[in-house]
């Protein structure tokens, strides 16, 4: 993990968010444990797609746990918390995947939350054209953010911005959420100006990347729905429940 040191020019909000970041090793261990078959005490071996679905479910559960610990979010009533997460669940999952690939740093393979590395040639051969297309589009964004030198401080702030990216008119507690949005935007702007003064438009470039995260997440939801219609999704799948939930 990238070591963090505080210091001048790191806004308080970003410092707090860094402290809230889950330990990647613990998340990996929990999810690997969940994917094992408790009855037989050995790794479960469903079809790869079914395993990926359960992996995505468990990753989202980790994201919900992170959100519940987040300042402002934890002060909101459950109804507002649900509204926010229903708005951004797929974007948070996509962004989680993107940042893992940036840390992974290999163009020819992707790293799963379980620590498994999958060659892109394997994805091309086994995943089907829709999923392969999604993975390749995500890899383009990884390259873009890598070129922008996205760092951990910016990552946590962007994640927080995604969580609060809904128009406040859909929420009960307008003022708290609006305040969080403004503070996170200001923190990211201050941070990028202070730490990347040679790249004056980094803040705008990062926000533009969030537009692509949104577009990718829409495509991912279309893919999930396609699999759902084809009866290929496991039962009691959390992501399908999120997909079908009433939107704001």
């Amino acid at each position: 993990a990238e070591p963090f040191s505080g210091g001048p020019g790191v806004p308080e909000l970003i410092l707090q968010l860094l402290q809230l970041e889950p330990d990647e090793d613990q998340v990996r261990a929990r999810i690997v444990g969940c994917l094992q078959d408790p009855a037989k005490g050995r790794p479960d071996q469903p079809a790869p797609f079914g395993l990926l679905c359960r992996m995505a479910d468990q990753t989202f559960i980790s994201i919900v746990d992170w959100a519940r610990r987040c300042m402002v979010f934890k002060e909101l009533e459950v109804a507002d918390q649900m509204t926010l997460l229903q708005n951004c669940w797929s974007e948070l999952l996509v962004f989680d995947h993107i940042y893992r690939q940036i840390q992974h740093g290999k163009e020819g393979s992707i790293l799963l939350v379980t620590g498994q590395e999958v060659e892109l040639t394997t994805v091309a051969a086994q995943a089907g054209s829709l999923l392969h297309g999604l993975v390749l589009r995500a890899q383009e964004l990884v390259l873009q953010l890598h070129a922008l030198q996205l760092d951990r401080q910016e990552f946590v702030c962007l994640k927080f911005l995604i969580l609060f990216s809904l128009d406040v008119k859909f929420l009960n507690n307008h003022s708290l959420v609006k305040d969080a949005q403004e503070k996170a935007n200001a923190a990211l702007l201050d941070y990028t100006l202070c730490h990347y003064p040679h790249c004056g438009d980094k803040f705008q470039q990062l926000l533009l990347c969030l537009v692509e995260v949104r577009a990718l997440s829409m495509q991912a939801k279309e893919y999930l729905y396609h699999k759902h219609l084809g009866n290929e999704m496991p039962r009691n799948n959390l992501l399908i429940e999120m997909l079908q939930a009433k939107q704001t």
Binding site: V64, V78, M82, N236, E241, M242, Q244, A245, K246
Partner: peptide, 23 residues
């Protein structure tokens, strides 16, 4: 899918609701 109160997803509600999580 399972729906909680007001047509909301039940699993997400269970993950967020303190009373449900405490059980």
């Amino acid at each position: 899918p399972c729906q909680g109160a007001a047509g909301r997803p039940a699993i997400l509600y269970a993950l967020l609701s303190p009373s449900v999580r405490a059980v």
